[in-house]
Computed example of a mutant assay.
Amino acid sequence: MSTELRHLQVIGIGTGDPDHLTLAAVKAMRRADVFFVLGKGNQKDSLTRLRRDILDEHVRRPYRVVEADDPWRDRSQNQFAGYTDAVHDWRRRRADVCEELIRDELTPGQCGAFLVWGDPSLYDSTIAILDGIRAREEVAFSYEVIPGISSVSALAARHRISLNRIGGPVHITPGRRLSETFPNDDGDIVVMLDARESFRHLAGSGIWIYWGAYIGTPDEILVSGPLDEVSGRIRRMRAEARAEHGWIMDTYLLRINTDGAEG
């Protein structure tokens, strides 16, 4: 029996633009023998196609792509405790799928890779899932993480703004926790994973929003301006985009302008 370890790479690939790949990400992809992809249904086939397009453009050596269905996740929970339990349950089932892929599709001594949207350290479960699999001690492997351009960085770049103002911090929160965070007297707020459009509950002069969806893809949408003026427009565009594509990934920055001027 081989004493060699399987090796995995968790590669941040940015928000969809092949040009967002770092040189480190490209070099890591070129070391991989197998790429694992968890599909999210027919409505999100475009996400799988984007991964394959990235591989076609940057990887010259022979490789395999192994796909599996991502387990269903209960997104109906509103309370934090219920939401946390639902996420832990989903991660356990996702770990079962990933463990089977690693064991059955990756030979000891080979290198496998997960291509992660944005950056693996920011609101992504891959690192936690691999740690959970290692803790089970059923299949041995090592892994490394290659950072990527996050949707937060891409949002700021596309709007040509800085995330922070002079000497100020930036708070990053999921949409379900926005009501606990806003207003933030000590800085600005980046909101991610906001399926419920939490910004619609905010009102007041001086609040600016910098919003973006499908950032880095051909379907990119950007809106910025006083929240009271553009909130309705964002909600309409968001609904239209979701209806067209079957899914949406968006991120936004909320900023209170104490001087009444943009930015």
Score class of each variant (00 low, 15 high):
138 E>D: 13
75 R>K: 13
82 G>F: 07
151 S>M: 02
117 W>E: 00
178 L>H: 06
181 T>C: 14
152 V>T: 08
175 G>Y: 07
68 A>Y: 03
104 D>V: 07
89 D>W: 10
69 D>L: 15
178 L>T: 02
115 L>G: 03
82 G>H: 04
75 R>N: 12
195 A>C: 04
87 V>A: 08
57 E>Y: 12
73 R>L: 10
124 D>E: 07
96 D>C: 00
99 E>P: 03
135 A>K: 10
157 A>G: 09
191 V>T: 03
55 L>C: 06
185 D>L: 13
74 D>G: 03
118 G>A: 00
67 E>T: 09
97 V>I: 01
61 R>P: 03
85 D>S: 14
85 D>L: 14
149 I>Y: 10
153 S>Y: 10
60 R>T: 15
82 G>T: 06
162 S>A: 13
57 E>Q: 14
157 A>F: 07
131 D>C: 07
113 A>N: 05
141 F>Y: 10
147 P>C: 08
160 R>E: 14
156 A>W: 05
180 E>S: 12
169 P>Y: 09
182 F>E: 11
98 C>E: 11
162 S>R: 10
151 S>R: 04
62 P>I: 06
138 E>Q: 14
68 A>E: 04
80 F>A: 13
173 T>V: 15
95 A>W: 00
104 D>R: 14
68 A>K: 01
57 E>L: 15
157 A>T: 08
149 I>A: 06
196 R>L: 11
148 G>A: 04
102 I>W: 00
60 R>D: 15
77 Q>I: 05
76 S>N: 08
141 F>P: 01
127 I>D: 01
56 D>R: 14
192 M>F: 07
68 A>P: 04
117 W>Q: 00
127 I>Y: 04
126 T>V: 07
99 E>G: 01
190 V>A: 09
123 Y>N: 03
59 V>H: 10
163 L>S: 10
79 Q>T: 15
180 E>K: 11
105 E>D: 12
174 P>A: 02
78 N>S: 15
166 I>L: 15
100 E>P: 04
195 A>M: 06
74 D>E: 04
191 V>R: 06
160 R>V: 09
176 R>N: 12
116 V>D: 00
98 C>D: 09
133 I>E: 01
186 D>K: 13
133 I>H: 02
162 S>F: 06
88 H>S: 15
80 F>L: 15
88 H>D: 13
89 D>G: 05
159 H>G: 03
154 A>S: 09
102 I>V: 09
170 V>L: 14
120 P>S: 00
128 A>K: 04
174 P>Q: 03
99 E>Q: 11
134 R>Q: 13
128 A>W: 02
195 A>N: 07
58 H>W: 13
101 L>K: 09
95 A>Y: 02
74 D>Y: 02
155 L>V: 00
90 W>L: 01
